[in-house]
Design a binder for these strands. Structure first.
Length: 309
RNA sequence: CGCGGGGUAGAGCAGCUUGGUAGCUCGUCGGGCUCAUAACCCGGAGGUCAUGAGGUUCAAAUCCCAUCCCCGCAA
């Protein structure tokens, strides 16, 4: 069975590597074009491309999937199945309908919940205890296709985006292999999504990263861990500088101070929230690298009674 | 040439504008106090102030020049 793989970031890489290691016939890899990234705008290839090159796989980086070019490429390589994992582009109908065994997608949530671009982050931010992986047959909608397999992954109280991402990437890879096998054997199930239960996990915008200390300590902590280590949530110190936070915990302490006020500097920066308080344990000052909160305090950048804004 | 911050003791920082004995909060080592301690007191070690036999100067961490490295933002 000839498989065309489409994906871009690390999350997709896990699945691609699993397919290759399992000896599946990956005849090509489609990934996003190299883009100028990072400091100095240097061109950077996607993780999937780097791996595919090492592995000697054919790499395609079309700017668009619509139109003659990709259409003829599709006919030329003639895949029996297309597997899409975090590719970053919407597939047009003609592509979805091309392969005999369909277009399979690996999605980082238990559909129909958290359809969309940032399911893992949103699940953590919402304080979910469980998330998971769903494999599905793609259709023209956004993560609305018929589901094939699911597997749950627990979200522990202190898991952050990085942990969950890694767990789900591994889970996604193994579930993908099972799914592919089931399809090949003609044993794959096909379950419609209940649209009335659907929720949408929108892409994380900068506004989503602002810490709102009027919320409960749990909400603040969930936001911080859901966005750590990237892109990181942030607040502002009294001098107006941005302070990102990469690690926190819910504090036992409390106070009647205003929300956002520093009420303790023992073992971190403890900040009063709408309900309860949160201790910031790891921060990243503007223009600096990440550091422990204790070190930030030693540098005398924050004092008791200061208020984050 | 996208924008910006920075390289001073093991960590985080100050000092640089207005050149002239290298400082703060910790850590560390030794001693003391204490039933005891991450607390407190006393004492010590530890720095080529990124690099350049560079420039200016009587004198450079500080001003000028060049290079290397680290980081944040934005995409």
């Amino acid at each position: 069975m000839k498989i065309l793989f489409m994906g871009t970031p690390d999350f997709a890489l896990s699945s691609l590597a699993a397919l290759c290691d399992a000896g599946e016939n990956v005849i090509g890899v489609v990934t996003q074009p190299d883009k100028p990234k990072g400091r100095g705008y240097e061109m950077k290839a996607s993780p999937v491309k780097v791996y595919a090159k090492e592995r000697g796989l054919a790499v395609y980086q079309p700017t668009t999937l619509r139109g003659e070019d990709f259409d003829s490429l599709l006919r030329e390589i003639d895949p029996d199945m297309i597997i899409v994992v975090a590719y970053g582009k919407i597939l047009p109908e003609n592509v979805i309908n091309y392969p005999r065994f369909g277009c399979i997608n690996v999605h980082g949530s238990l559909l129909p919940k958290y359809r969309g671009a940032a399911p893992m982050q949103r699940a953590i931010i919402d304080g979910e205890k469980v998330t998971g992986i769903t494999t599905m047959y793609m259709d023209v909608g956004l993560d609305t296709g018929d589901m094939i397999m699911k597997e749950e992954v627990e979200i522990l109280p202190d898991d952050n985006f990085e942990n969950i991402h890694d767990k789900l990437a591994a889970c996604g890879a193994s579930l993908l292999l099972k799914t592919v096998n089931a399809i090949r054997d003609g044993k794959a199930e096909r379950e419609r999504q209940d649209d009335t239960m659907a929720t949408y996990a929108a892409k994380i915008e900068k506004n989503d990263c602002i810490i709102d200390f009027t919320k409960s300590a749990a909400d603040v902590h969930n936001l911080i861990r859901g966005l750590s280590p990237i892109p990181l949530s942030f607040t502002h110190t009294p001098d107006g500088k941005m302070l990102k936070v990469w690690k926190s915990r819910i504090s036992e302490e409390d106070s009647s101070a205003d929300e956002g006020t520093v009420i303790s500097l023992e073992g971190g920066i403890t900040v009063k929230c709408g309900t309860g308080a949160v201790t910031l344990c790891g921060v990243l000052p503007e223009g600096k690298g990440r550091m422990k909160a204790e070190d930030f305090i030693r540098g005398r950048k924050i004092g008791l009674g200061d208020k984050f804004i």
